[in-house]
Design a protein around this nucleic acid. Structure first.
Lengths: 231, 231
DNA sequence: CGTCTGTTTGACGTAGCTCAAGGAGTGTGG
DNA sequence: CCACACTCCTTGAGCTACGTCAAACAGACG
């Protein structure tokens, strides 16, 4: 009971709990790493983790790497609802089936958890609490993202995205690696590849960000201005 | 424990549980209607229920009426993340503060619940389970809505919106009352009032829907075609 | 009956999309 | 170690769906 009460009562702690966890976690509890940490599985870049309509027997926690979850329209239009970084939980469903597709963005290591209750009953329900906290966090991110998709300009979207990524990745300084392609960014931000590219270039020209020659990383030069843009 | 296990284990039942409840609910348990049903409060149309930044001491369940929750950008751009119909729970937060504004769309009656754990401990944690289920449902709706905002055309958005509303309101036949203004629809669908109006008119001209003279209700004439449009 | 507010319609502007081509980094085979 | 090929990113030129601005229209209500 305690657990769900906390959920409905909502200790703010939970919301951020799993962020501070990341890869590191005590793996040696009586029941073994399988329970506490779940079974490990590795995926190479672009490998499918699950597809929409698959039976949702398991959910996942990112150990290393990055995952994208997305929906498709019948004609192929794609919306990436989220990128999942180390420590993030994804694939939790209310119903029987996965409502998304999930793929590795980079080579990725996941902890796999069965969704059956008994598999979660390890000690005091730490994982269960974590799952609820993760749902809560997903919801908050989704809500912020709706504001972005519904009301922000391309430049504002990029600024928001980069700031969010920077906050979530334990980035050294203000430099962020971009693990995903422009196409992934586009399908996350509700834009086209070209619009993403142009907005990035524009922010660069205005001196708010800086990119290396291979364009797969970003240095946030003017966080203040970016924050202002992000709204 | 049972409760949260169910959450992480995810009986599909929960997801739809509160939809079938609506206004009716057994109010007479030992502890009184206050616990089971929460304290009642009434709001007139456009009345503020809470604002972003307000201390989130309570959450709410719609008894009758409709509520909009929304975020604002500093320059006034608004994104309505959801409309809440009878039976829906809203205002649940992970942190200390509300992250949204909430207003009554029509005259609205709400059940108010304190978020303190002990207030939820009535019998077997029914309400707590309901809250978690509500979160799950919000998340699913938010995810679907991101696809809409990121990738659908104006006409597709309207079609999706009307179908969703029709499913959620226990509508007699295919007729739906539209409790919200075009401005509210626009700020929910990431469009302008004019674009909403034009898309509605167009669907009407194509014979997919039909509107009464006052334009505040819709009959879905061709659900098949609407579904096809909605993707 | 007149005012008020929300909806529709029209004319025009533009942010972002489409289509197309040209770099540039990375990886492979000789 | 170089050359070629592949992929991804950028840039350019025009197009279009939707936004903006403005006005007319129509229920609703006093």
């Amino acid at each position: 009971m305690q657990t769900v009460l906390a959920t409905a009562g909502l200790a703010p702690v939970f919301a951020t709990a799993l962020l501070n966890e990341g890869v590191a976690q005590a793996p040696s509890i009586r029941a073994g790493a399988e329970l506490r940490g779940g079974m490990r599985r590795t995926y190479e870049a672009d490998a499918e983790i699950f597809a929409e309509g698959d039976r949702a027997a398991t959910f996942y926690k990112v150990v290393t790497g990055v995952v994208r979850t997305y929906k498709l329209l019948s004609d192929g239009r794609r919306q990436i609802d989220a990128f999942h970084l180390p420590g993030d939980i994804f694939g939790v469903e209310a119903g029987e089936e996965h409502r998304f597709n999930a793929e590795a963005v980079t080579e990725t290591k996941l902890a796999v958890h069965r969704r059956e209750p008994h598999a979660l009953s390890g000690d005091d329900g730490t994982l269960a609490r974590e799952v609820v906290a993760a749902m809560m966090r997903s919801l908050e991110r989704a809500q912020d993202h709706m504001l972005l998709l519904g009301r922000k300009s391309a430049k504002e979207r990029i600024a928001t995205f980069l700031l969010g990524l920077s906050r979530r990745m334990a980035s050294r300084g203000a430099a962020i690696e971009l693990p995903m392609s422009r196409a992934d960014m586009a399908d996350h931000l509700g834009l086209t590849v070209e619009s993403v590219s142009r907005a990035v270039t524009q922010l660069e020209r205005e001196g708010l960000i800086e990119l290396p020659p291979n364009r797969r990383a970003v240095v946030l030069r003017d966080v203040r201005a970016l924050n202002h843009l992000a709204g």
